[in-house]
């Protein structure tokens, strides 16, 4: 009875080992190749799920199936105009053929170092063949600025007439890197410039340039302010003159009309008997001109006193 139980236990253990040796699973993110005594056999296995292999003889080596990152170190590279810039690139790649990949580069670490050489060389080539503006800009879109920006920190640069632009240069780098890469079972998906910055020396020059640019802008605003002030002041003086003289003109017009009207009315009325008018007016004028400081010397011949001398007419 003891022997039977023992046998069952050993049998179960053997079945477990066998199952473990016969089956293996692959995740969706994985792919694999089968090695027979260290030698690859059959095709790459790229389907996820449960798979069968020959136990004990065959071994499974698993690779990543996903897009993998390559992130290069920043490199100092001169552009076509000999401006030194830091260029930082990154790339995406994948193991397209695990079998070839295993045979040619064995593992990811060695693949990364191969990629370093290939991509860095492609980047260096295209950066040094192009003007900086080609790497910075992506289109010939017109830039808005508060000042003329055609004179940049690097002198006069035609910033609005680039030939390629960054995206196209990315594309060219990728093409070049693909051409240069031997058949490693690697698919290079894209290479992109992540960062570009000036080297320390150039940066200093750029800052100086930016500062003098800002001085120019500040000066422009100040003189604009003075100009506007003069404009407004001038307008104020003009308006004042206009308004005041308008008032004067209108007032004089009205007064003229008034005088004309009055003259007309007087002429019409007094014209009926001018002699009587002058008589009346003269009398009226006595009332105003002969005041308490007037001394009147009258002759007894006068109309007023004619009776004083003689009652007879």
């Amino acid at each position: 009875m003891k022997a039977t139980r023992m046998l069952i236990s050993i049998g179960g253990f053997l079945i477990f080992i066998l199952a473990n040796q016969c089956f293996y699973t692959l995740d969706e993110t994985e792919q694999a190749i089968i090695l027979e005594f260290g030698k690859p056999v059959g095709k790459s296995i790229t389907d996820a799920g449960l798979h069968f292999k020959v136990p004990f003889i065959q071994k499974v080596t698993v690779f990543d199936k996903r897009f993998l990152e390559w992130d290069g170190d920043a490199k100092q590279v001169p552009t076509a105009e000999k401006t030194y810039i830091w260029v930082d690139t990154f790339a995406r790649w994948r193991i397209a053929d695990p079998l070839k990949f295993y045979q040619r580069v064995t593992n990811e670490i060695s693949a990364q170092s191969r990629l370093d050489d290939i991509i860095n060389s492609a980047v260096r080539t295209f950066v040094s063949e192009n003007l900086l503006i080609e790497l910075v800009r992506n289109s010939n879109r017109e830039l808005q600025s508060s000042i003329d920006i055609s004179v940049t920190a690097l002198g006069v640069v035609a910033i609005d007439s680039i030939q390629f632009g960054r995206e196209n240069i990315n594309e060219m780098i990728l093409r070049k890197a693909k051409e240069a890469m031997p058949d490693f079972g690697i698919q290079l998906f894209d290479v992109r410039i992540k960062r570009i910055n000036y080297s320390e020396q150039v940066q200093k020059k750029v800052y100086e340039r930016m500062i003098s640019e800002r001085h120019r802008i500040a000066e422009k605003f100040r003189s604009e302010g003075q100009g506007l002030k003069a404009e407004i002041d001038g307008k104020r003086q003009k308006e004042l003159q206009r308004i005041t003289s308008e008032g004067y003109r209108r007032a004089e017009e009205i007064k003229g009309h008034a005088d004309a009207e009055a003259t007309k009315i007087y002429a019409e009325a007094f014209g009926k008997d001018p002699e009587f008018y002058s008589f009346l007016q003269t009398l009226e004028s006595y009332k105003t001109t002969l005041k308490d400081n007037t001394t009147l010397i009258l002759s007894t011949d006068s109309e007023f006193l004619k009776y004083l001398k003689d009652i007879r007419p």
């Binding site: 308004i243 008032g247 209108r250 007032a251 009205i254 007064k255 008034a258 009207e261 003259t263 007087y266």
Partner: peptide
């Protein structure tokens, strides 16, 4: 300006009315 005009208008009224009265 408006004041000057109004004053002139007053002058007009004054002048004409007086002339009419005198007449």
């Amino acid at each position: 300006r408006q004041q000057m005009i109004s004053q002139a208008e007053g002058y007009f009224e004054n002048r004409v009315n007086r002339a009419k009265g005198d007449a």
